[in-house]
Amino acid sequence: MQQIHHLINQWYQTNARQLPWREPHVSGWAVLVSEFMLQQTPVVRVLPVWTEWMERWPRPQDLAAEPVSEAIKAWGRLGYPRRAVRLHAAAVEITTEYNGEVPTSEQQLLALPGVGDYTAAAVACFAFGQPTVVVDTNIRRVHARLFGGAALPEPNPRASEFVRARQVQPEDLATAVTWNISVMELGALVCTARSPKCEQCPVFEHCAWIAAGQPPPHYKPKGQAWQGTDRQVRGAMMAILRDTDGLLAPSAFLSDLATQQEPIFIGLQSLDSPLEQRERALAGLLADGLATEESDGIRLPS
């Protein structure tokens, strides 16, 4: 295990991507924002939005001072905009409960709005150098192949995967902190889901999956549908709300879309979604706090 730790950590030192939230002395807030944005979103899409956010809101109290609608607008097309609402709520709590300083312990981080087990462990490790056990999709895949001999981890995380992650964690503090990010980067760049670059892997000779003859996955991964889904319709509605100053009558979304002349409706019109789906999508936005309904119309939450 010590040799595996050394090989992967050494590989990371040479091959890691230069990402701004990994820079030395970067703030805990910068890391927290990156972790919110990187959930189910590739780095290439996150980079420009993260940069704009950090220029506009370099501290949590800067974001907390603005209405949540501004966070939703600035989130743009990253997807899953509930993350923007939760990040704003986390900024408010950090400002009011922690004097504007992101808490350093895993348990305190876990208590913030929108922060789950992975994010709490990742921020504690990457921002504050704590030897937490970080387990994300990339790490699960590397562990499944390197130690388990399986092509892919289970479709949904299992308790046994977290037990294994703790078992293979280095005992030395500094080595453990580097190990988390190193394994994650290895999964992102080399030990990928579809086309792993095994010839570039620093632990090729130690890999249980290679030793087993690279057996195929024991299930067929299912991609997440987008075209024609409620999520796509919600996204088109959110784009309209972000581009609208003031209120919109519910009928703007629910009446005959062909009658809408405003350019901002082009995206929703092109979907040709049935009324029932638009009603469901709008109800979901209201329930999730991404839109608010007032007596005279609908708008982004204030």
Results as ranks from 00 to 15, higher is better:
Thr95Gln: 09
Arg242Thr: 14
Leu63Val: 09
Pro274Cys: 03
Phe204Ile: 08
Ala150Ser: 11
Gln227Tyr: 03
Phe126Ala: 02
Val102Gln: 04
Gly297Tyr: 08
Ile4Gly: 02
Asp296Cys: 01
Ala281Met: 07
Pro250Lys: 09
Met237Asp: 09
Leu87Phe: 05
Ala283Leu: 13
His206Val: 00
Leu152Ala: 10
Pro170Thr: 04
Trp11Asn: 07
Pro60Leu: 05
Ala252Leu: 07
Asp117Phe: 02
Val183Phe: 03
Glu93Ile: 12
Gln107Lys: 12
Glu276Val: 15
Ile240Gly: 01
Ala71Leu: 13
Asp243Gly: 09
Val43Asp: 08
Ala165Tyr: 07
Asp136Cys: 12
Val177Arg: 00
Val85Trp: 10
Asp117Cys: 00
Glu93Val: 14
Phe265Val: 02
Gly213Asp: 00
Pro81Asn: 10
Lys73Asp: 02
Pro250Val: 07
Leu290Phe: 12
Glu93Leu: 14
Pro216Met: 05
Trp209Tyr: 09
Met37Gln: 06
Ala225Val: 02
Ile139Asp: 01
Gln130Ala: 00
Arg278Pro: 06
Ile298Met: 12
Pro202Gly: 05
Ala65Asn: 12
Leu173Ile: 14
Lys197Val: 12
Ser160Trp: 09
Val85Pro: 02
Ala176Met: 01
His206Leu: 10
Gly28Cys: 00
Leu109Arg: 02
Arg141Cys: 03
Gln224Trp: 11
Thr41Tyr: 08
Phe126Trp: 02
Ser295Pro: 00
Glu101Ile: 12
Thr229Gly: 08
Lys73Arg: 15
Ala84Thr: 06
Leu109Lys: 02
Pro221Tyr: 12
Glu106Tyr: 06
Gln39Asn: 10
Leu275Met: 08
Val46Ser: 06
Met37Glu: 03
Leu7Arg: 14
Pro42Phe: 13
Ser34Glu: 04
Thr244Trp: 13
Ala176Pro: 01
Val43Gln: 11
Glu294Pro: 01
Pro24Tyr: 08
Ala291Met: 03
Phe162Gly: 01
Leu247Thr: 04
Pro216Ser: 04
Gln200Leu: 15
Tyr80Leu: 07
Leu110Gly: 07
Lys197Ile: 12
Arg83Glu: 04
Ala16Arg: 14
Trp29Leu: 08
Thr229Ile: 07
Ile4Asp: 03
Val183Leu: 12
Glu185Cys: 02
Arg194Phe: 12
Ala124Asp: 00
Glu199Pro: 01
Val163Arg: 06
Asp136Trp: 04
Trp53Ala: 07
Asn156Trp: 01
Leu275Ile: 13
Pro250Leu: 11
Ala16Ser: 09
Pro67Glu: 14
Arg166Ala: 13
Ile298Glu: 08
Ser27Trp: 06
Pro24Asn: 05
Val92Cys: 13
Gln214Ala: 10
Gly284Asn: 15
Thr175Ser: 06
Ala144Cys: 06
Pro153Val: 03
Asn180Met: 04
Cys201Gly: 10
Ile181Asp: 01
Ala211Phe: 09
Glu205Asn: 15
Ser105Ala: 03
Gly267Met: 11
Val168Ser: 03
Gly79Cys: 13
Gln10Pro: 00
Gln260Asn: 14
Val168His: 03
Gln261Lys: 14
Phe265Met: 05
Leu241Cys: 09
Glu276Arg: 15
Ala16Cys: 09
Ala281Thr: 04
